[in-house]
Design a protein around this nucleic acid. Structure first.
Lengths: 221, 221
DNA sequence: CGAATAGTGTCTGTGAGACAGTATTCT
DNA sequence: AGAATACTGTCTCACAGACACTATTCG
């Protein structure tokens, strides 16, 4: 008997997160095909073994192909599996989360994409509610000891913007002066010489990350 | 064209960890079949969609079926995928890590199983070196803010034993009095009334976990 | 008694919250 | 001038490391 030939469906799903109105929001896409055609769901698709070197690249391909987006942070969350999560049969979906500056989402202007605050993204098809919840929980944990929330912002940002990104990711407010002290000590960012952001009453110094990738700290932020 | 019918291989692999000689050790199994027959590798096997409700239960089934073991902690690490990790074709392996008290391993006495300190478990087939490294890293992180290391011990243990489990998991030594203070404040364990462990010079109070599952703390241990 | 391990009490430094206060720009 | 936001300085408290000290058992 060749039970190993009965192979399950393998897909990827991306929880695309952004920051708007001081809240973490998830970007969903209206499904083109059955099952659940027309409903908002995570951006996802089949893994194509013949063209995808890994599920990571499959997720990047799906993000680019279905939403026209590329992101600086795309990290694996975990794999969701079972016989009842997809009516097409027993399936495993490798879930990823991605972080996108809101301006990149706004610039795209894709009618199939919708942005929703995570608290309002309920009742999604498949087990996408659980996947979104898992991504938020992971990001919250990871925000506490890494530069992750900075990737919700454009490459140049002010300290108040960075603090609000951390507050949104962590789900709690932070003490401003303590935050500045820690960010300074962690050597996470560097000032952009001579440039100021002028969107608020008093212009603020612009910073950029010292590292292009997410860095983890020993201490908590 | 029906590219979605080309389905990859889906397997599970378990990084089974235990504590011995004050070091984290990984339990490996000699492979019965090709590829890499006879070599030590992670305990793993195919996912069977017709009988496994999820990859989690598949991992538990493989652990029981191939090693005769059941564990109190079995958590998903992440999924490793690609066309070159397994000579049989493009595959995805959902990796899990499990924690086992050493006495349970010793009681089993299975000749196909070998225990190795993680530093010496190198040169494994497939991408199992990377999977082991990922599991160790995840456990180290998780040990810092959870009761995870306690599951390397039998249900009843002393405070010095618990501290050594944390030290092995974290990879650094801990201050004894600070450790006792924190464990006390975290309400993680409770004394077993009137029982003492007598394996050391001075008998020590026995404790057990207050919760059967891994609990996470706000503070670090 | 001395060795070995278990367990306690106390000092001190560091890091983070609180918050008052100053700086700069706009209307 | 006053509102709004950016930024700084300082006080204090809680927590964790260090470490000296006591307790209990064994040989």
């Amino acid at each position: 008997m060749a039970t190993e030939l009965i192979r399950p469906i393998l897909t990827v799903d991306v929880v695309l997160l952004t920051l708007h109105d001081d809240r973490i929001q998830v970007v969903l896409q209206a499904r083109e095909k059955a099952p659940h055609a027309g409903q908002l769901a995570l951006i996802g698709g089949y893994v194509h073994p013949e063209e995808d070197p890994s599920t990571q690249t499959a997720a990047a391909r799906v993000l680019r192909g279905k939403a026209g987006l590329s992101v600086r942070v795309l990290e694996q969350l975990m794999t969701f599996s079972g016989g009842s999560r997809d009516p097409r049969g027993w399936s495993a979906s490798v879930a990823y989360y991605a972080l996108l500056p809101h301006r990149d989402f706004a610039a795209r202007g894709d009618a199939s994409l919708r942005m929703l605050p995570v608290a309002e993204a309920k009742g999604l098809p498949f087990d996408h509610d659980a996947i979104v919840a898992g991504a938020i929980q992971r990001c919250r944990r990871r925000a506490a000891y890494s530069s992750l929330p900075a990737f919700l912002l454009p490459p140049e940002f002010t300290l108040p913007e960075l603090r609000r990104a951390y507050e949104a990711a962590l789900g709690r407010s932070l003490n401003d002066s303590a935050f500045r002290r820690k960010i300074d000590e962690l050597r996470m960012i560097e000032p952009v010489a001579g440039s100021l952001s002028k969107v608020t009453a008093r212009p603020a110094q612009l910073f950029r990350l010292t590292k292009a990738n997410v860095v983890e700290f020993d201490r908590t932020v």
